[in-house]
Design a protein around this nucleic acid. Structure first.
Lengths: 218, 218
DNA sequence: ATTACTAAAATACGAGTAG
DNA sequence: TCTACTCGTATTTTAGTAA
């Protein structure tokens, strides 16, 4: 994302464009950014064209709301600054239990993955994943992980199908050693998959909607 | 700060320039930012000229370290993103007790301030301040306060001298109601002054070097 | 009041290149 | 190799202005 677009996007976020459509005059935006009304107007159009915001002008007043792509870009920035100033060996993540669609278990059954987990994690995980949906401040920490290296799980081919690569991070939740796994090729997601030697759901007595805190150990 | 300069500064921070001088080739920086070697070189020169970094080229290799002004700019950004995603009514601050130079008490004795505190805070504070030096992640929260409104304390003139304006935020520390006070006209500082109805140092049995956590209530 | 077009002015960029 | 200069060009910005 181009720096000057980011600056405009950031300003829109700060006046509330993340939550709801805000009305902003191009002159106002211009003044805030130290640019002319004309340029500010252009910035809004550009942001909209690139899909960062939804921009409509109603009754001669611009209304702007940050789109998913814009939120993602801002979260990336947030994660960068967090990493810069709050770098730590332990990263907390909070999330809420969600039922998956069972595909987690399907992947965990594949030999190609099982083998790698045993070698790289030191154990063969239970055949099922715990899905956690994160929100709020925790999402920025997720973003830090996305930018970190982690333990590499390579892609492999089996039965004419390619199973994609992923990366793992060791973690602890409720005293249980576990790991989270992130697919390498995937778009933004606010849910993480937790694997462990044991069935975490049963072990911790979790049901959908329960909050779980886990600590990633880098 | 101009957006394109910020982008370069941020990249330098992410490769460790906050902590120590890092060696970076202009081509490298250029590739990372999607600009040419020439432009990247110019960015470094510009950052140095504006005082954001200390830049020296030794044996044909650029060495760059982020200067105080650069750190400040980055912290501002960090605070913006924090505010955007982690906005809360309660902001935690952690700091370590430091002895002041007694000027805090001098100011607290001035009628012009005392009067305003009584009116706007609801009590007349103890004539002395508790100084806390903040560090780490807490500094970003301090920055949030710097950008927030707070309770305004106006400047006034007395005895031919002008006493500057300030802003206050209500807070709680160790169960005691207190407030932090920030001068309006002042440069970046990592220490805050806490005032309260009581002598907090005595009341909480604090001595230099003790850690204190307080919660700002916006 | 607005937004946003066009065209001119200002600025930023990178190729070439010296040190 | 490296940095960083000059300079022609491309891009960006803004003034003027229409809608």
């Amino acid at each position: 994302m181009k720096p000057h677009l980011l600056a405009a996007l950031k300003h829109i976020a700060l006046i509330g464009g993340l939550r709801e459509p805000v009305s902003i005059a191009s002159r106002e935006l211009g003044t805030a950014l130290g640019i002319s009304q004309q340029t500010a107007s252009q910035r809004l159009l550009e942001l909209a064209k690139e899909g960062f915001v939804i921009y409509t002008v109603l009754a001669r007043k611009g209304q702007v709301k940050i789109a998913a792509k814009g939120v993602e870009a801002l979260r990336r920035e947030h994660a960068d600054y967090k990493r810069m100033f709050e770098l730590a060996k332990e990263i907390p993540l909070r999330g809420v239990v969600e039922s998956g669609l069972g595909e987690g278990a399907f992947y965990m059954r594949q030999k190609g993955y099982k083998e790698q987990f045993r070698r790289k994690l030191g154990y063969e995980p239970y055949e099922g994943t715990l899905n956690l949906r994160c929100s709020g401040g925790t999402l920025a920490n997720l973003e830090i992980l996305r930018l970190s290296e982690g333990i590499e799980i390579s892609e492999f081919v089996s039965g004419g199908r390619t199973y994609g690569g992923a990366k793992c991070f060791r973690a602890k939740a409720g005293g249980i050693e576990c790991a989270i796994i992130m697919p390498l090729r995937s778009h933004y997601s606010d849910t993480i998959e937790v694997i462990s030697r044991q069935n975490m759901r049963a072990r911790l007595g979790l049901k959908d909607g329960d909050a779980v805190e886990l600590i990633i150990v880098l």
